[in-house]
Design a protein around this nucleic acid. Structure first.
Lengths: 355, 355
DNA sequence: CTGTTAGCGCATTCAA
DNA sequence: TTGAATGCGCTAACAG
């Protein structure tokens, strides 16, 4: 290839530094730094001159150098299992909003639901490329805690276990959420309630299963193992889980799903099989994602207050960042809310109208 | 407050550096650097000793220092308008996968559909905190190009305009996509086809409107301005847009939406009004997001190949990063695909069955 | 009000 | 095979 005319300037030319602008403006680099950061004192005259030449040269401060020196990046990271899950999107938006007000940039990290990725993110946090981290881990075992202890930067975990005080955390009693949903179903006289859970090796998976079992016990119903199936918290996971349910000799009276995404997948599969919701089977999800409202029938669900948990997490982290980092960890707990919509209220087939 | 026992170690203790491990292992920092990076030569003996003490001390390399020195961060950024939009999620996942294989970390940036954020991201790219950027801008004007020209790092834009060769880009002819959808509708004999467009000041908005107009002209149909309404590419935007359509004296025969999210919102609003899809009105979206498949009725749509565009963009960027950055910009174009599902095929009310 | 200097933690040349 | 020295670009003392 012939020697290119150096037209396309996306090459790696020498970047302009404060030295360049110092020389050009006839001042020292210290002065340049001062006016650019509005720190210390300087004359009106130099202010103008420095700013002018900075603009002239198209100066942009070097993030690496600055961060290395100041020992902070003004970035915080949010690590979630699946950026495609609306729950995490809601969380991310809430967090984004509050950290931004405080001058921080939010970077999203996706773990693709893999534990080793979670650990690896915790590890790389030690590299200090962000000032703090909010993580919503799918699992939360010894490996996590060990890494967490190593980390030199504030971390707040969304999720985790109640009463675990190794780091700041915001907790929602999702087992209670499950029980609320179960009550709602049981109150309508349903006793054969299937449970579409997430992976049993995840924290949400085990916790929610507990809630299911507790509700059953409380009502003197023995758990039918065939009614408990597993998905992976995704749409298609729910779809496949419903398929398993459909293979059972008889249809359950109701299906409770560990999250809305799976509930929506279940809904789809049921419809494909000609099963009507809620007439033939009642359906309840968890999370209260936007799609739950607009699905048809609108999905009854348990809000786990994703946005609010995100906001709280961000505030906890910001607290660590700006003031004390020596105080003992705090855990704030939020309470789930049942939201009854169409998918779970079965009026009599003979057509009783709603109130 | 009493003097805290220094229990909770998330404070900002002095981090361990290669100096520490050099001292401890009785070698120079140069040697430490060499074995840790597997560069240069060193004895088996020192290898073991250095590695051991590094582990012992819980050493983690400082990202800032390393990047400052090497002038690269091994991070690339993806900036999108709305992290909640499944299209961008699909893009992100595809990109994530390919950059990861090449040892890069992907950080997600959300512009919240604001142009000033897009510009600001371009600006901060000059700060060099990522090695490259993939951006899918909603608008693409002079301000963008001006910033783009300043930037010292490779950028690839997803979207933009055909034939614009200021940077690498991947382009999908969405106007053609609209025409394909229109053909599908017109072929069924529909002539009153409403168009729910995105904001008219965005690139996708203007381009898709053109496609709509062209299709109409081609079929000798004059555009009825009342049939063109605007949303903001979100679910609720579609919902509101449908409300406007519902106010019209008569219902259009079909509704084409500039994206699936709005189409789903429209679907919901129509159902609320007791309008059946596709029996009363045919509905078509664009993008082919996962929810389009599982909605009910399943949504006819035009795939804009988000994942594939993401993959291509990532490959273009990686190309710049690893080999030449001097070559002239490339633009690769992908062709949309019509995907006919249930929402647009109106069988006769008398019940003709599908083939 | 401004300039000089010393690192931040690391990779890398140049000698040994 | 290893060590000493240099500097990436910047901020923050410390002098003047």
């Amino acid at each position: 290839m012939p020697k290119q005319s150096k037209s396309h300037s996306n090459g790696f030319e020498r970047q302009v530094t404060i030295v360049d602008i110092a020389e050009r403006a006839g001042v020292s680099i210290a002065t340049v730094s001062r006016v650019l950061n509005q720190t210390g004192r300087y004359s009106e005259e130099t202010l103008k001159r420095v700013k002018a030449t900075a603009a002239e040269l198209g100066y942009a401060p070097n993030f690496m150098a600055k961060s290395l020196k100041k020992r902070q990046t003004e970035q915080i990271a949010l690590a979630v299992a699946d950026v495609g899950n609306p729950v995490y999107v809601a969380m991310a938006k809430a967090i984004q909003q509050v950290v931004k007000e405080h001058g921080y940039r939010l970077v999203l990290l996706s773990t693709e639901a893999r534990v080793d990725e979670e650990i690896s993110i915790l590890q790389s946090l030690a590299k200090q490329y962000v000032d703090g981290l909010i993580i919503s881990p799918l699992s939360y075992g010894e490996a996590h805690k060990k890494q967490l202890a190593q980390v030199k930067r504030p971390v707040v975990v969304i999720g985790g276990s109640p009463g675990d005080m190794s780091v700041d955390s915001v907790y929602v009693d999702s087992a209670k959420g499950v029980r609320m949903a179960m009550e709602h179903l049981l109150d309508q006289g349903f006793s054969q309630i299937a449970f579409v859970n997430g992976p049993s090796e995840t924290v949400p998976g085990t916790v929610r299963l507990h809630g299911y079992e507790e509700a059953l016990i409380e009502h003197g119903i023995v758990l039918d193992p065939r009614l408990v199936v597993h998905g992976d918290f995704t749409l298609s996971g729910g779809h496949m889980a419903a398929a398993k349910l459909l293979e059972l000799p008889g249809l359950p009276q109701a299906v409770l799903c560990a999250n809305d995404l799976m509930a929506l997948g279940v809904l789809r599969r049921l419809r494909e099989a000609g099963v009507r919701v809620p007439e033939d089977v009642a359906l309840v999800g968890m999370d209260d994602i936007e799609q739950a409202r607009i699905s048809s029938p609108a999905l009854t669900t348990v809000s786990l207050l994703a946005a609010e948990r995100g906001r709280i997490a961000a505030e906890l982290l910001l607290g660590r960042l700006t003031s004390g980092s020596a105080e003992p960890p705090r855990q704030v707990t939020v309470t789930p809310r049942l939201i009854v919509r169409e998918s779970s209220v079965a009026y009599s087939v003979n057509g009783g109208a709603p109130a």
